[in-house]
Amino acid sequence: MNASPQLRLRCPAQSRSVAPIRHALRAFLQAIGFDGDCLDDVTTAAGEALANAVEHAYGDDAESVPFVELHARIARGKLAVDVSDRGSFIERERLPGRGFGLRIIRAVAPQIRIDTARGTSVRMRFHIPKR
C-alpha cells in the first residue's frame, strides 16, 4: 500500500490551540517538501482559518461540541487543507476585528470553499511546489 502522507488534528476550540496546530502543520509541510514563501503562505492561511474558528464558531450555541479540526493531505495533485468546526457559520468578514482573515485566505489560497452544512469547513487547496 502506498498511502499519501496526511495530518489530522482535533483540538479544543480555544485560542491557545491555534499555535500548536499551526506548528504541527508547518512541520508536516516541511516534511513533504514545502519551504520559503509557500510554507509561510499555507501556514498563514491555515492560521487565519483556525483563528476564525476558535473566535467565532461557537458563539452562544451551547449544543455545539467545541472543537476545531485540521486535516492536511495531498489530494489530486494538490495540497488540501481543511479547517472544520461544528459551530454556526457567521459572516465573519463582517465582524469587527476579524475582517482581514478571509481576505488573507482568499489572497493566499488558489482555491477556497466554505461549507456550512454541518458547522463550518474552510477547504483550501494549494499548488505543490516543484522540487
Partner: peptide, 9 residues
C-alpha cells in the same frame, strides 16, 4: 517571527 490578522487589526 509570525503574525496573524489579530495583530494586524
Amino acid at each position: 517571527t509570525y503574525a496573524d490578522s489579530t495583530a494586524l487589526t
